[in-house]
Design a protein around this nucleic acid. Structure first.
Lengths: 133, 133
DNA sequence: TTTCTTGCAAAACATTTGCAAATCG
DNA sequence: CGATTTGCAAATGTTTTGCAAGAAA
């Protein structure tokens, strides 16, 4: 079963790949609209599911109400600013024996590890009133 | 400001504390009903928010549609079975220098780390009928 | 044709909110 | 009294679904 990139799917994939942030479905629809493209909500969500299943994008569920989508399909993690909500990538990986350690402790056969850091990003940190412990 | 445990909040807290799983709001309402308690949805959600803010429980957003609630407020992580959906605790912590490593790499001031493992639990691995989460 | 995809609207679902009534100190 | 909390219903926001029409193989 090969990949069938319809014009809608291609346009959505392009939006995600050219995004520097991690857009939600609404973000994606807004950006499509800016380009004069008006797809139905159902089509956008169908396409996002299809692209995710085909491993062309990744769906990020960071605990906000809406899923975000990431054009980077390599294994990596994320850090989200608790002030502005921005999401950045984390390419540092946990120690190699970490997963087997968890498998020993939990008796689960671990398939994936999802790590989400929350903190304050550089620009929000600069905007803060200076307070030191 | 001290903690104001109304009968509703106390009943909800009791359900969460006596649960061995990690119940969702609907689970909690169902268990309250079994005890003859019928609170309004709004009240349950208000109470869950209050209890979370008071640090008596923790809200878990594991990427499912509904939040789960955890009576264990100590720092720990979670592993979820990809077959039956069961959630277990992970008490193993990442290396101590892990957070500062991430701070160096990302330039964020890290506040919290949330780690979610996904895998197959012992009973589902054995092919047994999966226990209800 | 047969299969897949789109568009649209409605439905599903978890959660929040507005407001009046009840409660409590 | 004044502040908080409850109950109810309606609203919100995200995502899914049913179905007819359209496109493609």
């Amino acid at each position: 079963m090969s990949i069938n990139l319809t014009p809608q799917r291609k346009a959505i994939l392009d939006v995600i790949r050219s995004a520097h942030d991690h857009p939600t479905a609404s973000d994606i629809i807004a950006r499509l609209n800016e380009h004069g493209l008006h797809f139905a909500y159902g089509t956008v969500y169908n396409s996002l599911r299809y692209l995710t299943e085909m491993n062309l994008i990744r769906e990020l569920k960071l605990g906000d109400s809406a899923s975000r989508y990431d054009g980077n399909t390599e294994e990596h993690h994320h850090v989200q600013c608790t002030i502005c909500g921005k999401v950045d990538e984390v390419t540092t990986h946990p120690p190699l024996d970490w997963t087997s350690q968890i498998e020993q402790d939990t008796d689960y056969a671990i398939q994936t590890t999802q790590i989400i850091f929350k903190g304050v990003c550089p620009s929000c940190r600069q905007g803060q009133s200076p307070s030191k412990p």
